[in-house]
């Protein structure tokens, strides 16, 4: 019995708690037209300062940390602090300099404009 308890205890001690937060995948909607790609992501409870959007080498990564100010004793808790993480491959034709992000009511909206060169062009046919 003692031996078993010892093993259990060691197990508890050895767990490295490097990540305290749950990782969650936010639900997204993606739209596209000729000028830009639009990405809407649900991140309820995340404030502007805790969101990071990175575009690096064709990968767009979103991260948002939610910190709830919990008050008092919880009767039930169906959501808690977590980190929203998701990454996407973006085409090289995105103009990284002009990417624009807005956050409203817990929804992150990313505008990824296409670079001029990538936009469809109407080609005029010359009559000889």
């Amino acid at each position: 019995m003692d031996k078993n308890q010892e093993i259990t205890k060691r197990e508890d001690k050895n767990i490295e708690k490097t990540r305290e937060l749950y990782e969650a995948i936010p639900a997204v909607d993606i739209y596209e037209n000729e000028d830009e790609i639009l990405l809407h992501a649900d991140m309820p409870g995340v404030v502007k300062d805790d969101i990071s959007v990175n575009i690096d080498n064709g990968t767009l990564s979103l991260s948002g940390v939610r910190k709830l100010a919990s008050k008092g004793l919880a009767n039930w808790e169906e959501f808690s602090d977590l980190e929203y993480i998701r990454s996407f491959s973006v085409p090289q034709t995105i103009d990284v300099e002009k990417v624009d992000a807005e956050l409203k009511d817990g929804v992150l909206r990313l505008h990824l404009p296409k670079s001029e060169a990538a936009k469809p062009r109407q080609i005029e046919i010359k009559t000889a």
């Binding site: 649900d42 919990s70 004793l73 919880a74 009767n75 959501f79 817990g106």
Partner: peptide, 22 residues
């Protein structure tokens, strides 16, 4: 929507996730 209920002295606090809802 997901909710939390906290008891806080004389108050109940309810949090609900409602993203994108005005």
């Amino acid at each position: 929507p997901r909710t939390n209920l906290y008891k806080n002295g004389d108050n109940f606090e309810i949090y609900a996730e409602v993203p994108g809802i005005g």
